[in-house]
Design a protein around this nucleic acid. Structure first.
Lengths: 205, 205
DNA sequence: GTCTATACGTCGATAGAC
DNA sequence: GTCTATCGACGTATAGAC
């Protein structure tokens, strides 16, 4: 929220040429991820498809993990700008909409899971920073929305907004995992049920 | 559920000697995981601390991933036998109790996340089988418990038991992740809130 | 400033000796 | 049944061409 608009932590300088080239490489890297599934995520494989040497990737991104974070962040940013989120959504539907968009890009959901899992281990600062920032930003946004809906009576006002946010985000992430492993898991219905519970209605399904 | 009591998919034979040796190595591998954190999970590092060559580990377990699955399964099995789950728990509390026990073993939660993330990618059959089995077994157990509590009036009977189970498991997993990354996330309170919502009470917190 | 070429150490896996 | 030896691939680091 307080962060500047773009990620400049590893840009080779603030000159237009370098930034443009970095962006160009990042674009191609995203294409590679979108085209292939979750396979072939090694530095050398990405470099080969992008058309450069693997050393060029580390030159611009510092490490494989930072490249992966950049790919995910940029993909998410594009989703947000190309498909701006409709307003007035319930908490669970907010998560559901963005999750559906991510799912259109093959490999992106796997990339997200990999980054979060890496963040939990020691020695992965880039993944850790990505995951903590993502969750805290998401919780803030969601909590604000929850408070609005509590004010308008659409969510029970006896619930802590931050707790509700953590719960909804957790449910969305976890349900997506279960659904990917077993498509018979109806994650959409489960999120709708959660929404109904938060609203306090008895007519949930 | 229908599976035999032990995992024999990669045992070097059904002779007592080989199985005993495998178990012995597995015991030491678990000690290594319990002692260290999530670090040093390479085949060679584990082998060194166990006191064998890395080739010996692949001989008994086939691959690193299968060894990791065996370590997690055995740890979970010991938890279940040493600390049998109290009966009469609510769904969210069931997850909370077992999660707390897992958290006592350093590195086990990270191992779980790594296995699930691997399961989502192609080319990780051992992790995939582990994750799908775990989730489906957990959902079955939990759904049965939910139905009991619905019969006794402690959970709203207008909710689908399987959906509730998926939701509770997802919330538990996701909240644990958020809590590990940011301990200010009160995952216990969030799970209690979910329990209260499922019960239909307005006096949740 | 960009990028290639190259080398280093480690990885998981495998083959074959004992 | 367990070892040594070896393989190809990995991420990373560095030197130097342009």
């Amino acid at each position: 929220m307080a962060a500047p608009s773009d990620d400049e932590t590893r840009s080779p300088g603030r000159y237009a040429k370098g930034i443009a080239r970095r962006q160009e490489i990042l674009d191609k890297a995203i294409e590679v991820f979108a085209k292939r599934g979750s396979k072939r995520t090694s530095l050398r494989a990405i470099a080969q498809e992008v058309g450069v040497t693997h050393a060029a990737l580390t030159h611009y991104f510092g490490s494989l993990e930072e490249l992966l974070v950049a790919v995910y962040r940029e993909s998410e940013r594009r989703n947000d700008t190309e498909h701006p989120e409709p307003s007035g959504l319930s908490p669970a539907m907010m998560m559901r909409v963005s999750a559906e968009e991510n799912r259109n890009i093959p490999g992106l959901v796997q990339l997200y899971s990999t980054l979060v899992a890496s963040a939990l281990e020691e020695g992965h600062p880039a993944a850790y920073e990505f995951a903590t920032q993502r969750f805290s930003r998401l919780r803030e946004q969601m909590a604000e929305r929850v408070r609005e809906l509590q004010a308008s009576g659409e969510i029970r006002d006896d619930l802590d907004a931050v707790l509700v946010s953590s719960l909804v985000i957790a449910a969305s992430d976890g349900l997506q995992t279960q659904w990917l492993l077993d498509p018979s898991v109806d994650h959409e219905a489960a999120l709708e049920m959660l929404d109904a519970l938060l609203a306090g209605g008895r007519d949930s399904r």
